[in-house]
Design a binder for these strands. Structure first.
Length: 744
DNA sequence: GTCCATAGGGTCCGG
DNA sequence: CCCTATGGAC
């Protein structure tokens, strides 16, 4: 039997979790212990052995990515899965969306089933509009987004006074009315309204309307109150609970999850607690070091041998380190390590900048993980608004924004745009009322403006909609005469066009997949595009691409690499803040998460002369917490000469342009710039590299010795690199300033 | 309208 | 720690 084999591949702990019969079970899955494997096996076990249909399971994740992974791994094991069967599989928000659309009676609250999900920014815009119209007194308007999020709980608890004694609660009330009127849900509303209707379902004993057999939750430690409540309602409706998570990986308390969540869950659901204590990912040394940062020092056992020790390196500053990393990574590449197995983690997004510059200059293939949403791509932001008003004339605000867009719109003033849209909408409504069979549905005139095109869209495509004729983005592209707005002369034209094209293709495919007409499919897509915003853009998710990954420690969660470099382990940066203990604990967990991403090699580094203010020059005490016997050769300093570094830095700054032939080995002192002599005196050389380069001018092939590669001969060089042929290793490239080569 | 003291936020970033 | 929006004093 197929499932028997599946079970045989699990260890005893994993097997126990999969086979557990309790009504509620919480699995404390230690880092790298096969959490997702267990989760998938559980689903398969319930389906194959317990004959629970997939339709009766609710499988909840926090990210679209995790949801996608689960679907994918499931599809690999079970081929004939239909989308309907997996409607309960997704993020908390997408499952709530499904419930509100297809199961729960939202119309009883005054919403229509075709509601739109809006992004936080849109709620803020709506709020600002209300503030203006009603002359509300709101303090800190520039931080409205944060205030709406943070002070919402106070409002919901029925508090009278706002934090700053202003009209914020009046605003929240009006905002609620306005969202209802415009048929819009925020992310939070999805869960809040779901919870409200589920609670009512329970209270009125109408359990037959929705009664999942199982809820299975991934990364349960990230749940906030509203999500726990959602789980609770499903449990009350009769579902059994299986939740998997790790209290040591709570790094998002600032957005609502709490570190004692595991304890809370056990109390609330009377759950049995199991553990998955065996880590399969990291080498023994890495795991042992990481264990120093475990918060709940429960059982955590490694399955691997000790492996290579960690390294701790000291660099002068981030630039020197970037040079070093470039050389180091090149070395790894040459020794056959795939780029995709190498990652550099840092605490702050801004730290990637210098790495990007240097890696670009050194031709190291890399990719920076930056949060990308629709908002970050202006053309899509604009075009989605165009489509939203086109498909739904009730969404006048979208029409106004499309029309008044600074870059792609037609009308300068937002006020004027609003007037135009309003008049067109009322005019259209009137014409509809006195509809005499006259031929009003003319195709859009070629020279009409955007307003007319948006208003005529639904009518124009109505017939095609019936026959599903639209399969080519060109129809829509031409209808809007998009070239008039994207402006072929603009520098970003081809990129913009590709984005738009891509989006249209996706929307058409979506409509076809859903078995809906073109227009209906578009509407449904647009209504929930906020929830899947990032996925729309995923032309390629490049975890597979062969490039070095640069990301923040936060972003590293859930990933693994064979070689990991955590940089800037300075006090003041890792941990970021000092002072209060709550956040300090979180920093420790964050560091733990980062370290445990590494499979085979982990290197930690800090700066003696950090460029950023508020970063202390010394090593973080986190480094002192790691037992020395796990560290190769104590702290190794990467030595260099400061003037070389400054020269290199200037080159890199310029490298966007054509690289000038740097006079690195010209006459003595040629590299000394005015600022340099005016600034603080250059440090005394601490390395031995200066003499070496002088020697090479004479065209000799100097013999060198390197601590790691042994004795060799220089074979070639340019301004920045030296290549040497080693007797026992082969060819190796070094950055001159860091070569650590001893010239014989 | 301008000045200035000061409270409070900033980094991290899911849906 | 540093920056700045805020709002009262003038």
């Amino acid at each position: 039997m197929n499932f028997e084999r599946e079970l045989a591949e699990l260890n005893e702990y994993q097997r126990a979790a999969v086979l557990d019969e309790n009504a509620a079970c919480i699995v404390s899955a230690k880092v790298g212990s096969g959490k997702t494997t267990v989760l998938i096996s559980k689903v398969l076990y319930l389906h194959d052995q317990k004959k629970v249909p997939y339709e009766d399971m609710v499988v909840l994740t926090f990210t679209n990515k995790a949801a996608g992974e689960i679907r994918e791994r499931l599809a690999a094991k079970e081929s004939s899965l239909s989308p309907e069967q997996l409607q309960g599989f997704g993020t908390f928000h997408s499952v709530a969306l499904h419930l509100l659309r297809d199961v729960l009676p939202v119309e009883e609250l005054g919403y229509e089933p075709g509601f739109t999900v809006i992004e936080p920014d849109e709620e803020v815009e709506l709020a600002l509009q209300i503030i203006e119209e009603e002359k509300l007194q709101i303090k800190y308007k520039n931080r409205l987004k944060k205030r709406l999020e943070q002070e919402r709980t106070l409002y919901e608890q029925g508090k009278k006074e706002t934090r700053y004694g202003d009209d914020l609660f009046v605003l929240m009330h009006r905002l609620g009315q306005e969202k209802l009127r415009q048929n819009k849900f925020t992310f939070r509303d999805l869960l809040r309204v779901s919870n409200f209707l589920l609670r009512r379902l329970v209270a009125e004993g109408e359990k037959e309307k929705f009664h999942p057999a199982w809820i299975i939750v991934d990364e349960v430690q990230d749940s906030d109150d509203i999500q726990i409540e959602f789980m609770e309602h499903l449990v009350v409706l009769g579902a059994k609970l299986f939740a998997v998570g790790d209290p040591n990986q709570v790094i998002y308390t600032w957005r609502g999850s709490r570190s004692n969540i595991f304890y809370q869950l056990k109390e609330r659901f009377g759950a049995r607690e199991l553990t998955l204590p065996i880590n399969y990912r990291s080498s023994g040394a890495i795991l042992a070091a990481a264990k120093c940062f475990q918060q709940n020092p429960g059982e955590l056992t490694g399955a691997r041998t000790r492996g290579e020790k960690l390294r701790i390196r000291r660099h002068y500053n981030a630039f020197g380190e970037a040079q070093y990393l470039a050389a180091e990574i090149r070395g790894l590449m040459e020794s056959g390590v795939a780029c995709r197995e190498i990652a550099v983690f840092y605490r702050l997004q801004s730290q990637s900048e210098i790495l990007e510059k240097v890696f670009t200059g050194e031709s190291i293939p890399f990719e920076v993980s930056v949060k990308k949403t629709i908002q970050d791509i202006p053309v899509l932001n604009w075009f989605l608004k165009v489509l939203r008003f086109s498909c739904n004339e009730k969404d006048a605000p979208a029409g106004v924004k499309a029309l008044a867009d600074k870059q792609y719109g037609e009308i300068r003033s937002a006020k004027r745009a609003r007037e135009i849209i309003e008049s067109v909408v009322t005019e259209k409504a009137e014409r509809g009322r006195q509809k005499s069979g006259s031929e009003s549905s003319q195709p859009a005139d070629e020279h009409e403006g955007l307003t007319e095109k948006m208003c005529g869209f639904a009518e124009y495509f109505a017939e095609d909609c019936l026959e599903n004729v639209i399969v080519d983005p060109a129809y829509v592209y031409d209808y809007f005469e998009l070239d008039r707005y994207l402006k072929p002369t603009a520098a970003r034209y081809s990129e913009d066009r590709e984005y738009v094209w891509n989006l249209l293709e996706r929307m058409i495919t979506f409509a076809l997949e859903q078995g809906l007409g073109f227009l209906e499919g578009f509407r449904l897509f647009l209504n929930s595009s906020a929830l899947y915003g990032v996925q729309i853009l995923q032309k390629e998710v490049n975890l597979q691409a062969d490039s070095v990954k640069l990301m923040t420690l936060h972003a590293s969660k859930g990933l693994e690499f064979s070689h990991v470099y955590i940089i800037g382990v300075n006090f003041g940066l890792i941990p970021l803040r000092t002072g209060d203990f709550e956040t300090e604990d979180e920093e420790r967990r964050l560091f733990f998460v980062g370290m445990t991403r590494a499979k085979d090699y982990l290197e930690l580094s800090y700066y003696t002369n950090p460029d950023q203010v508020r970063v202390a020059p010394g090593e973080s005490r986190y480094l002192q917490m790691i037992p020395r016997e796990l560290v190769e050769g104590g702290v190794e300093e990467v030595r260099f000469e400061k003037t070389d570094l400054q020269k290199l830095r200037k080159e890199v700054e310029k490298s966007a342009r054509v690289q000038p032939l740097a006079m690195l080995f010209g006459g003595g002192g040629a590299g000394k710039s005015a600022e340099e002599s005016a600034g603080e005196p250059a440090d005394k050389p601490v390395g031995e590299t200066a003499e070496g380069s002088a020697e090479m001018k004479h065209g000799k092939m100097p013999r060198v010795r390197h601590a790691k590669y042994g004795v060799g001969t220089i074979t070639s060089e340019d301004e920045t690199m030296v290549t040497a042929e080693f007797e026992n290793y082969g060819e190796k490239q070094f950055i001159k300033a860091f070569s650590e080569l001893e010239y014989l």
